[in-house]
Design a protein around this nucleic acid. Structure first.
Lengths: 219, 219
DNA sequence: GGGAGCCTCCCCCTTTCGGCAGAGGCGGGG
DNA sequence: CCCCGCCTCTGCCGAAAGGGGGAGGCTCCC
């Protein structure tokens, strides 16, 4: 591995955050902050001009937000900067930010409260072509993988049989298929789907399926 | 939160590894290694006896392997130890270990080459109910987030309009509602749903919704 | 000019859902 | 003991979805 200095650009609308990051990163012998930006347009411009190894970007910024920056730089469009890995750093771990960012090619997703250690680790990981995601977000990503360790509170609303049926609905099964699977009559399946529907407040079976995915009952 | 010492047990068949971990962890003021085990049976016995906050466990061990230890301790069976979070630490990042471990409730998955910093961070994350996964593994998990679960790849398969319709389908909207929302005729909505269905390989609209949820198009 | 792809709309028909109402068996708890 | 919740099943009917076809207008590109 080439042991040269890793060049970093920080994009955040809060000067204090930029200053704090710079202190932390410049304290590392192999890291160097070479630029800053206070909004999305500045982040894009600076990244395209300096082509840093790492761009730390906040999600919420004036102008194009962090997600848009990720899309443009990490994509394969005309304005992409392939040699720059973009790490998203933000305050809140909202799903609506996490998934698009990671899907669109972010090389990491950190929370500001994670502390300086993980920030440095995330940069080193990104330089190795890896990705570090904040532990608090990772647990949710894993939940999409987990054999449902129960938001028992929400699921308690449904009876065992209803939950079973709801899970199969979420897989795209018709009532007849569910009936065959569970060895009951299609009419009974309709009963279960209907009560599950009523209990979770859905207007049709797709709503039941959506609920099943949200709660982790289905995956 | 009680700011007491985090009690740790190390299970690894190599004494040198156990020794190294102990040095690193005991150097932290708030961490304390209270036990060691050299095989799976010992890991289970020690965990059940000491009920530590953290169990670091290697995957490859004599007797029950690390995955079995995770299953038994993190499950809800008779031998489970709910207050102990199990972090898997191993040398190789093989999928056949990673996925089962995380699915069965591991509170983290680390590579030994990750270094002491991430080890300490992983323990702190686990104590907060979070999970730290090695960056080199995270990239693969993310890859599975974008592409792998769908046989036909990315959203690029769908046209913009189809994706829009698919998103509304995932919200539980009927064709008529989607039509009203997008200001097009219900018949056109049916066309879009049908082609989205065909492209993602679904048998009905619930399958389209499932795909939208899996790929993150819908939330 | 001639595709190709996309969006839009229309027809037909069958299958599946969704809502309604009822009913019997079976278990646990007041 | 009786009531309540759950699971099972039945019927009917209108609404929605799914499958097949065709068709016109639009843009982009060769």
């Amino acid at each position: 591995m080439a042991d040269v200095t890793t060049r970093i650009v920080i994009a955040d609308d809060q000067a204090a955050i930029r200053h704090g990051f710079r202190l932390v990163l410049d304290a590392q012998p192999d890291l160097c902050v070479v630029g800053e930006a206070a909004d999305g347009a500045g982040a894009l411009a600076t990244a395209r001009l300096l082509r840093p190894d790492i761009l730390l970007v906040d999600v919420r910024m004036p102008g194009p937000d962090g997600l848009e920056v990720v899309r443009q730089l990490a994509g394969d469009g005309p304005g992409a900067v392939p040699e720059t890995r973009v790490i998203v750093v933000t305050t809140f771990d909202l799903d609506e930010y996490v998934y698009p960012a990671l899907r669109d090619g972010a090389a990491g997703y950190l929370l500001k409260r994670s502390g300086p250690t993980l920030l440095v680790e995330a940069i080193r990981a990104a330089m190795s072509g890896e990705a570090l995601v904040s532990p608090s977000i990772t647990v949710r990503l894993l939940r999409g993988l987990t054999a449902s360790p129960a938001p028992a509170t929400a699921r308690a609303a449904l009876t065992e049989r209803e939950a079973e049926v709801a899970g199969l609905v979420a897989q795209g099964c018709t009532n007849a298929e569910i009936a065959a699977e569970l060895l009951i009559s299609p009419g009974t399946v309709k009963t279960h789907v209907a009560s599950a529907q009523r209990k979770v407040g859905a207007r049709n079976r797709v709503g039941v399926a959506a609920w099943a995915w949200r709660t982790g009952l289905a995956r």
